[in-house]
Structure formats: C-alpha cells, structure tokens
Design a protein around this nucleic acid. Sequence first.
RNA 1: GCCGGUGUGGCGAAAUGGCAGACGCACAGGACUUAAAAUCCUGGGACCCUAAAAAGUCGUGUCGGUUCGAGUCCGACCACCGGCACCA
Length: 658
Amino acid sequence: MPIADSKIRVFTTRPDTLFGATYMVLSPEHKLVPQLTTPEQKKAIEDYKAFAAGKSDLERTELAKEKTGVFTGAYALNPVNGAKIPIWIADYVLASYGTGAIMAVPAHDERDWEFAQKFELPIRAVVMPPVEWLKKNAPADWSHLDPNSFTVEFAKIPKNFKTAFTDEGHAINSKNLEVSLDSLGVTEAKAKITAWLEEKGLGKKTINYKLRDWLFSRQRYWGEPFPIIWKKDAAGNLYHEALPESSLPLLPPSLEDYKPTPDGQPPLARAKDWLNLPDGSVRETNTMPQWAGSCWYYLRYTDAKNAGGFVGKEAEQYWMGSRGRQSAPSSAPEKNASTNVGGYETPGVDLYVGGTEHAVLHLLYARFWHKVLFDLGYVSTPEPFFKLVNQGLIQGEDGQKMSKSRGNVVNPDDILVEFGADAFRLYEMFMGPLQDTKPWNTKGVEGVYRFLGRVWRLFVDEQSETEFEQAETNAEPQGRGELLDLIKLNAAIKDVQPTPAQLKPLHACIKKVTEDLEGMRFNTAISAMMVSINDAMTWETKPASLLKTFLQLLAPFAPHLAEELWAKISTIYSQPSTSLAYSPWPKFDPARLIESEIEIPVSVNGKMRDVIKVPADADHATLEAIAKASEKVKAFTDGKVIKKVIIVPKKMVNIVVA
RNA sequence: GCCGGUGUGGCGAAAUGGCAGACGCACAGGACUUAAAAUCCUGGGACCCUAAAAAGUCGUGUCGGUUCGAGUCCGACCACCGGCACCA
C-alpha cells in the first residue's frame, strides 16, 4: 500500500472540517494521477479517464446525478492527524476549479456524502448539528429513542443519519497534540486551524477568484480570425505568436465554400494562400464567436472610421464619459446626485436594455473587456454602462419559452410582412410592462394594427383611398409609389382653432405619453393614445394643429405611419413642412388640465356607496354636507351614530358609523 | 441548491393607500352588405334577486397584521417563471 510521497494541494472553504477528511478526490485530469496510480489500478483508472473525457459538459453537470469514480490504489496522510486516507479520482471534482483536488469530508458535504455512501468510504463527524436537525434526519425507526442520545450517536456513527450536515455548528472530534478545535463555532474554528496550518507551513489562507470558463473560439467561418500564428521551435514543438500591430486588422479570406474541410479542419483552412505564410508559419484557423465583437462595439461606434485604433482618445473621452459631455447646453435639466457618478452625468452608454438570459452573460463579458481596457489605460472609465434595464422574455403563444424544439417560435419576418414594422413595434411595446415576461399573441398584433388603421382613416379621405387602391391594382409595380398622391386628406380636417373640449384631452394625452416615455411605460402611453384617437373619431371638425400634435406623440411608437401622415397633413398649409423627426416634442399646458367639477366616491365604513359631483375646490364642510345629503348614503347612515367623517379633498369622503 | 422575478376577468393587462378591471384581445348581439371580409355600434368578474333592471353580497395566489379605508404597506407561506450551478 504505497503512500504518496508528493504533496497534493487542495482548496477548501471549510478548513474547520479538516479532521473529518476521510478520503481525497482528484479530478480525472489532475497531473499527479499517473504517478499515484498503482499497477493493479492502472487499467481501471485509465478506463475511467477515458469515460470522463468522453462526457460532454452537459452530461457532466445536468445529467450526472449519480456519483462515479475509481480508487487510485494510493493513500495520503491527513496533515492534522496523520490518518492514512485513500485517494480516488472522480469527475464530480472539476479540474478547472481550485487546485483540481479536494479533501473529502463526507459528514459535512453533500457531494462527498453521496460518494462515500456509494463506495462505502468512512464518514467521520466533526461538526455537531443542533438537536432539531438530528431529530429530523435521524433514521425513522429511532422515533422511540431519546433525542438526547442522538448527539452521542451522531458523534460516533454519522452515516446512520439521512444526509450530510452542512450548516454551522460547534466542532467535535477535532484535536491533535498541538491544536484543538473542539466546541468552537465554525468561524472561530476556521481561524484557529488556518493559523495553525500556516504556522506549520502546511497551508495558506487565500482568496479564490472565479470567472466562468468561456470557450473563446469557434470552428466557423463567420467570426473574427485570431491574429495569431503558429511556429515550430528547434525541437519541432508548436508555439504561437501574436501578429505585429502593423499586420492588423487581420481580415478573413474570401471563400467559395464556407463548410469545414472533409478532414474536420475549420473553414479557414480552405484558404491555403491565406493560411500559409512565407516563413513557414501557419495561421490560427478558429474564429472568435459573436461575443468578441459585441463586447466592444459600443466603443467602436463612437469613432467608427478611425483607421489608427479601435477608438480615438477624444471620441472615447467625449462619449464614454471622462469629460462628462461638457459641451451639452448648460440649460440641460440638473440631475440629482445619485445619477452623478464620479463627477460625470450618466457616463458611458446611458442605458443598456436586454433580457437577463442574454444580458447576464453578455454584460459580464463586455464589462470584463472594458475593465481590462481600463487597466491598460485605453479607456477612461472603469464601467461602460450607466444603467441596466432587463426587459422581460417574450414567450411563445403557449406561455413557454420560445424554442425550435417546442415549435412555438414566432418569426418576426412573417409578422413584418403581414402587419408592417410599425404594428410589430407598437405591439411589442403594448404587450405589458417592459420588464415583465409575457406570452406572444398574434391576435394582439391585429389589435394594434386596427388602431393604426383607425389613425390612418382619421386622416385620409376614404373615397380617394378607394381610387388609389383601384389605380394601384392596375399600375405597373414601379409606378405605384407616385400614386400615393391620389390619397387626399380627410375633408373634416380644417385649419381651425381647437375647442377647449378638444384641447383638454389632448393635453392630458401629451402629459401621459411624455411621462410614460420617460419611465419606459410604453404600454400605458399607447393606451392613452388609443383613448385620444377613439375620441377624435367622433369629432365633426378635426383641427389640423391638434392632429399634428398627436402625430408627434405617435412618432416614437409608429414612425413610418406618423411621418407619412405628417407629410399628408402639411399639404393643408401653404409652406412645405420639414420632417416630423426634427420637430420639437410637444409640451403640455397644466392650465388646460384643470377641472372645475369632479366626481368623488363616498363610502360608509370603507364601502363605496355613492359618487357625488362636487366643485373641484370644495372645502371639507361642503364635501361633508353634500356627502351626507346623498340618498344612497343616507340608506346606510340613517338611525346610526356617525362616529367620524374622513375627508380627503379631491379624493373621497368616508363616513364611519357605529 | 443559490440568486432574481411574477401571481388581478376566458386572455395580455391598468390602478400617487381612496370608484378594482382603463386600453387591447377573444366572445355575444346589432348596423352596413345579395352575401362575406373590412368597418361601425352595444354588452360582458362572480353570486343573489328579477320578465328585465335597480339594490345587495363576494372578489386581486393563501393565511394573518397595520389602517377610517389595502391589489397597493408589514409578516409568514404556496405556486409558477428566468438566470446560475457537482465551484469543494
């Protein structure tokens, strides 16, 4: 029974359980495995390594519930008590995390517990659980025993209990001649054993950083080629080298065929001229995945034509925030202190909108790149994005996440062809709050499409539209665009002063849409516009100025239709109009929104009983008198003692009776 | 397992602690039409009573609390969705 004469380094967050380590596990890829394996175990170990290597990542994680592993035949010594413990390999230990080796404490780690139970390895208790845990996890047939005896049982034979105890408790069975952890809590025990190990030179306190392993290469054509070449040293070993800056940017070769080669090389290997360099070195043929570009395009966009670098200093400082957009007009509204970071207003990209499933990873890596560039001095701020909004996932019509395998994918192209970009865009905004997950419903698109149809009919003369449609059917395709001029403005639209009754709802709508846009409440902004349009349909005379304002509100939601109708309605005026896109956003006049008479609810004991019409500025006494005079209210108050009357002007009256 | 989110009509949803269900979908009835499509009008939470209504009762995942008053605030729980995950 050989005992390993080398040291095996392990990483743990629970050094306090070191006395409970009853075996060790190395990942199958660990480099000490070959030298540790005994001749008798060699075959089994090699078979297992092949088995583990053949598993995909998916199989190793999601599917691999059942623990597997093989004994190396070797033993290690536990530094705290000299115990001889077997060394196994198992794929539940990942080569890429920590040192790729663990000390297994089955009594206090669920994975180790499962493994120890399966392979009948010893289990040693070193942390005492609370009595409630012991009761809950004791074997069912112990119910007649005194729960106080469970403490003794757990300390002796923890394997009888149902599972590992992984929470905090006080240490037991944890002492040697020099150090004792017994009765200490987890935190104290960790500190004490760490100090002892460091003093003895047996271990070291450390911080372990983790960044998810990201496979940064693809065997596809579409992607940026790596500016890396491969060379051979004197012994014939391959090594790689970065291309000099003068050879950048490296462009992909043009290919006739974008498929991988018959012998399994990536597509770039087809471009022999590009691949092989005169000095005998060979280019890397993998390409970078889409992330590679999307992680920094926001920087490139600030200086897209710069041939000398990925972004110029001036442009970077202006757009990404180290200068704080000082050229902005001083009349710009002041932002409150919380939006002022490092002395700059909204530095970098003002707003990042993305769903969590995409943004969690993309945002993580884009920020990582940005921080690397910041540390290297190429960008001037440590963070690229000022504000994040996670928009909700759009599910399939069945309420499930869209996926090809479920067959519930909605293709945007089909929707665009049938309803147009405006309706598609409008529907996505109308579905519900931006941040919420919600199912797609094509019937809903029809709904907003009908709304846009009503907007259209509000503006155009239906007779002329019929003529247009007939002319279009007979016309040559290329001449159809000009026929649009056949469509005349609705005769009810006139260059007249709007009435106060028309202006009030309009200004309410401007207010609502303006505020909802600011808060990204697109769904309620759209419903406010629907209300306005439904109202305007009933007007006999439609003032042109008012309809123009409405188009300005609609433009961010349905830009194509709004711009088209803007041009059409401008024909009512003598001078030609400029594009709607350049017109200033309308302002609402609070004076237009003042009501003289309002309706407020009256309740008795908190239950609504009547609605009364009162002057908007009615005082407490007036409100109380009107409320008490209501016949419907009287039915509930007559013959009862009024204990209290609560009055909130402009809101409600509540009468409390005994 | 850890982190985050969401629960309101048949459906998507709305509602500074103050009239629950705006707006839209679906559905039903009607108008226009030879007919259909499109369009327009009307009606829809449940229960109870009624010829029909009015009035009344209940109702925002469950249980409890605060309040004159709770979808909204507080506490506990349940369910569903998303992200991450043998990370020692």
